[in-house]
Amino acid sequence: MLAIQAGHVSKVYKGSPYPALSDVSLEAESGQVFTLLGRNGAGKTTFVRICATQLMPTSGTIRVLGLDAVKQARQVRDLISVVPQEGRPLRALTPWDHVYNWLRIRGEGKERAKEKTETMLRRLELWDARTRPAMNLSGGMKQKVLVAMAMAVDAQLLFLDEPTIGLDPVSRRQVWSAIKDWKAQGRSILLTTHYMDEAEVLSDHLVIIDRGKVVAQGTVSDLRKVIPHNTRVDIAKDGLDADALSAYGSVTDTGAGMLRVFAFESAVRELSELAIRRNLSFTVSPVTLDDVFVYLVGKMEVNES
């Protein structure tokens, strides 16, 4: 069964001249992490909220876990759990209050809810802060409370809209590991993130959307192939000019004193010899998801109407 099946979904917000989503068709396998990438305002949250029965599509069909997300919203809601973008825990309530009571509201018995709350709070390192009111928690801890609430629930499909925003690198990895465990139980996840390393580590399938349209999708390695070259060479700029390098591949300025050349492996040897001759530092690496993202959606809007 598919976790999500979107057919020609469009969304035009009331009073907005542009569609936030236009004609999006996607299929997310169940038991996988399905990731949406895109610039600010690309339409990720809009898509997530339509799937999570929080927002109506303007047109198109959307099936979640085999159910119609518009006509069978109530059945869908039994099976999903969400971390909304920019959510906040209630000031006076503690992490324990949030997770435990949410589990109870969603129908868990007392004992089971206690167990699950403890497991989840320990797992996200909120255990020591379990009795602290949310207003006395740090920003990242507050965010983790919302993640803990959503992930403690027994749902089949989890919607995570930028779940690791503001988390330190260790906390992010705790969330990643919880996500992997969720998946290991055969359950599905729809994730959005601006962190390419996170997308790379977690995703089974990625979709890049730009201005409401799908521009590319596939596995990480599928997406890497979007860039015609497979290797990236960064060379210190000192005295070099971009034209001199353009014979080897496409050249961009990283803005950090380096020129970046996307090239084929065959050109790497010559490039590195050139750098050594001129005594310039350089690094060679495979093309990353970050590069693909910038390549696909990073064109500056200069003279577009």
């Binding site: 109530r74 759990s81 906040r88 949410w102 969603r106």
Partner: peptide, 13 residues
């Protein structure tokens, strides 16, 4: 402010 309602909407409540 809290997006709490978003959490409730996407739930059996």
């Amino acid at each position: 402010e809290y997006k709490i309602q978003d959490i409730f909407v996407a739930s059996p409540v």
